[in-house]
């Protein structure tokens, strides 16, 4: 199965890389928002897309178009992301094109589910939180990426 794992820089990609053993027997492909993270994803195909956040949302159509074209080429069976905003878009496009979609809420959302997490709850196939007290019937807690 083809797994496309998507994350922005910093903590998001650090958290995503820690999920790697879950995809051991699959064909794994990474996508991030800066070329410099290619070195962290050594040994796997790596694609970049431009970054955006809710503060420069005007970039969304451009990023969406670039992602759509990459997704058409990659044809992932599963799209998994640890955020941030570009991850939400990736899940949305993945869902439109028929991939199974997984949102893993970042460890740093310890008191409430993020806005991105709540958006993904509407259309993603699976949403994880890393904190037991934030689990709901729709948001799954199954341990965390740390310990």
């Amino acid at each position: 199965m083809k797994i496309l794992a998507v994350a922005s820089g910093g903590g998001h990609i650090t958290e995503l890389l820690r999920l790697q053993p879950a995809f051991e027997d699959q064909e794994l492909i990474y996508m991030s928002t800066h070329e410099s993270f290619a070195s962290s994803c050594k040994g796997f195909p790596f694609y970049t897309v431009p970054d955006f956040s809710r503060w420069n949302a005007f970039k969304i159509p451009m990023v969406a178009w670039k992602m759509y074209r990459l997704f058409k080429k990659i044809k992932p069976d599963v799209v998994v992301t640890t955020g941030a905003a570009p991850g939400v878009l990736a899940l949305f496009i993945g869902r439109l094109l028929g991939s199974k979609t997984i949102w893993v809420e970042s460890l740093c959302h310890a008191e409430k589910v993020s806005v991105s997490g709540k958006m993904c709850e509407l259309f993603a196939d699976r949403v994880y939180t890393q904190w037991a007290h934030l689990a709901t019937p729709k948001i799954v807690y199954a341990g965390n990426i740390m310990i």
Binding site: M1, I3, R18, L19, Q20, P21, A22, F23, Q26, V78, V80, K100, I102, V104, D125, R126, Y128, Q130, V140, A142, G143, N144, I145, M146, I147
Partner: peptide
């Protein structure tokens, strides 16, 4: 550890 907890990895594996 170098990776996420076994619980999380298994849950994702089973879901995929």
């Amino acid at each position: 550890p170098a990776h996420a907890s076994a619980q999380m990895l298994n849950s994702i594996r089973d879901f995929i």
